[in-house]
Design a protein around this nucleic acid. Structure first.
Lengths: 179, 179
DNA sequence: CCAACCATGTAACTGGTTACATGATTTA
DNA sequence: TAAATCATGTAACCAGTTACATGGTTGG
């Protein structure tokens, strides 16, 4: 259900499915990912439901694009989604499930290897996020003021990853004390 | 795929589907939730695949239970899952998707209401987690030493929620400055 | 001309949720 | 005896992923 709302939100200005995928990669992928194979059918459904209008546009260059425009009903749907209040869907954290069972590894060194790999993964996510922020800064000098709420989401991403990294270090230290 | 591995991990001692659901509610629900409608068929599949053995056991009291036992192949599968290294599946955060589009609300007061509700939700998750920790403490006085890794997962939950709460407060403050 | 990229789509499958069905046992 | 809880399951559906198919356009 959420992808529908997200696409509606992104369509405050007209865009094609391919455009939207690019936007996902730039601004939303740190808290939401979507594949084209899911985006295209969802847009078709939104058009059928009367929330979007579609038109084929042969552009100045490149292959023909199907551009979607948000209708009044579409904008209303976004506002209703936001007025429902925050949605707390229990998110699953795969690697935490693994940490939970780490005692199943008979060799303590294997558990430590796991945690070091985890730390490395989190750290690379952190640098990735900082790269996104740099991109935003260079795209528009008015950032972060011109993108107030997107900036907030990025801040939470950075904050959480920093906290997770700290947790990794503390956990590894405790594992060493445990021996 | 992960639920299979989690169930295998939980079955270091024999249990029924219903037991496992209870364990989910106690120890894992802060990073993974599962319904009985998913647990039962998954256990059946694991039995069919030869990783678990099942036996009907008419207990001293209560209705008959189907108890599953992990076989050697099952334990091996858990170790292999852990040796693959940490799985980073991009987690989706619904409420962040909503925050991203909060400018769609024409009335700034509505956006603030949203953030306050978000803060309240996070806070209640935090108290819920602290309640779980208290439960663990009273269940076993040796905690957290006897449950080292489960304790670590709880710590991350607490750390992240505290960080998120701080972010909420800072964000609300920025929104007020923005006017 | 070929590789890389732009652009749209369908089909099959997996994982997970919601709703429903059934019945035994325990407790108030 | 009625309600709550224990206990196991199936069916229909929804969301999301992976793999595949197709073809236009641009740049080396």
């Amino acid at each position: 259900m959420s992808l529908r709302n997200i696409l509606l939100g992104m369509l405050s200005s007209p865009a094609s499915g391919y455009d939207l995928k690019r936007q996902f990669n730039q601004g939303l992928r740190h808290f939401w990912a979507a594949e084209l194979a899911q985006i295209y059918p969802t847009l078709q459904k939104l058009e059928k439901d009367g929330l979007l209008a579609a038109s084929m546009e042969p552009p100045a260059q490149g292959p023909p694009r199907k551009v979607y425009r948000r209708k009044g009903t579409g904008s209303k749907a976004v506002r209703e989604w936001l007025k429902e209040g925050p949605q707390f869907r229990r998110d699953r954290i795969s690697y935490l499930a693994q940490v939970y069972f780490l005692d199943e590894l008979p060799n303590a060194a294997d558990a430590k290897t796991f945690m070091l790999e985890l730390r490395a993964g989190i750290e690379s996510q952190l640098t990735e996020l900082r790269t996104i922020e740099q991109g935003w800064k260079s795209d528009d000098p008015r950032y972060p003021d011109e993108a107030f709420y997107p900036h907030l989401t990025l801040q939470l991403g950075l904050t959480r990853l920093a906290a997770t990294l700290k947790w990794c270090d503390e956990s590894i230290a405790r594992m060493e004390q445990r021996n």
